[in-house]
Design a protein around this nucleic acid. Structure first.
Lengths: 244, 244
DNA sequence: GCAAAAGTGTTCTCCATACACCCATGA
DNA sequence: TCATGGGTGTATGGAGAACACTTTTGC
């Protein structure tokens, strides 16, 4: 494996072209099987995971940087991204745990990681259409995996706190910014939408009132009925009316 | 004037002890004469102003850094601080304007400013008791002045956008976090409090309903009446009931 | 007593909740 | 015709808006 060499090259590239002491991490939310999911990448070959992230090029706007990182790793364009917090505690990298994990997994981490200098991370959360994401490998990992928000694997650094704060932000943004729609596909039933809201807010909602509330927003376009072959009334499909 | 020399020393100190490419800026809100105010510092001897800010020491937590900067410049301890956004566009320093202002004012700015490298600024807003602030001089300025939010002076960099976003954040935080109280003194009348809310939300509120709403929160303690000598009913004084 | 401001009571509307009811579908 | 889920109607309660009313104060 020439992992070592390519990683060294990677870090050299970062050192030359990117801002020191800074990184971007992105909490990528998706929705599938009635559950809210987060896309994480395995940290080398360990049993720990981390958020997708990257570094900021010297001549690149912050937001553009987050967009680029996401595009590189998910193949997605036109992504919904929201900056929500910047994490900068001196002990946020938890290097003790990092070294333990690295030893245990036999990963041959470069010094840049094991004794990494202080890094401040600007965090974004992103809402994506789960079905459209094609996870791609990153420099620290061969695989990216979707995890249930309820059932996350062990995480490195302060990425658990990042996810928690992203979740809180999403919850309080959901009604105000109506951005939950970015998690859905092109068309969907009212039941789908309700399940999404329930997954984000982590509580049950009353079906009939939810329907009225959504319709009263005036942003849904009712399409034809969806006949599923199930023994009950066929639900309407809806689409988001694009603001013009 | 040995401004040049001390500034050079200051920047050398920064280069050694602080993180490169990063800064902190703080929007300091106060309330006086029924108006919402912001504390700004004159940029050298120019007619332009900037937010109070500073740099992050290499071994200092982000929040601690903001606290230190505020304490150095206002003398305040126990300050209400909230991180709200990180600004990082490549053109945010608006160096064209900076150079023009510098030439016009005859300020002899060090190269670090005129051709300053990319800086990403982590922004906080702070709510302080106006009467307790004793503005102190900073490295770039002799004077700090309170300005009406409605009547700000010309600003450098992207500090106008920072203030605007801080204002939006404060407005939407006001009801949810009930942090407006940090802008008031120890005791106050209901009319004082209403004027504060009106200044922040920039709209008139209905007196009678405002009173009921505030009292129903259960966080106000009613004290003795305040006899002002005016020819009308004396209002009660209130104090914030500290959570125990 | 009067004007001005503070405090309280009352009504109305709106929205969220809760729940009853009917409708459509396929077995 | 029955079970299941989808869609609509309706009663209720609480919060906010609007406004009438009373109380207190110093002149």
């Amino acid at each position: 494996m020439q992992k070592d060499q390519s990683l060294t090259k990677f870090f050299e590239h970062i050192r030359i072209h990117c801002l020191p002491n800074l990184s971007i991490d992105v909490v990528i939310f998706g929705f599938h099987d009635d559950r809210l999911k987060i896309l994480l990448q395995r940290f080398f070959n360990s049993d720990h995971f981390v958020l997708l992230g990257g570094y900021i090029e010297k001549e690149e706007n912050l937001h553009d940087s987050a967009v680029r990182i996401l595009k590189e790793r998910t193949g997605l364009d036109q992504i919904y991204l929201e900056q929500y917090y910047t994490f900068g505690d001196t002990d946020r990298l938890k290097t003790d745990l990092l070294q333990k994990v690295s030893r245990k997994s036999g990963a041959d981490l470069p010094d840049e990681f094991l004794h990494s200098s202080r890094t401040i991370s600007i965090c974004y959360y992103s809402l994506v259409d789960y079905t459209k994401v094609k996870p791609m490998a990153g420099p620290f990992s061969m695989e990216s995996i979707w995890f249930d928000i309820e059932n996350l694997p062990p995480l490195l650094f302060d990425h658990e706190a990042m996810i928690q704060k992203a979740m809180q932000t999403l919850q309080s943004d959901l009604d105000r910014k109506l951005n939950g729609f970015n998690l859905m596909g092109e068309t969907f039933t009212m039941a789908d939408l309700q399940k999404l809201y329930e997954a984000v807010l982590q509580k049950k909602l009353v079906r009939t009132n939810f329907q009225r509330k959504m319709l009263s927003l005036g942003i849904l376009e009712r399409l034809e009925k969806q006949y599923t072959g199930k023994a009950h009334k066929a639900p309407y499909l809806y689409r988001f009316r694009v603001a013009r």
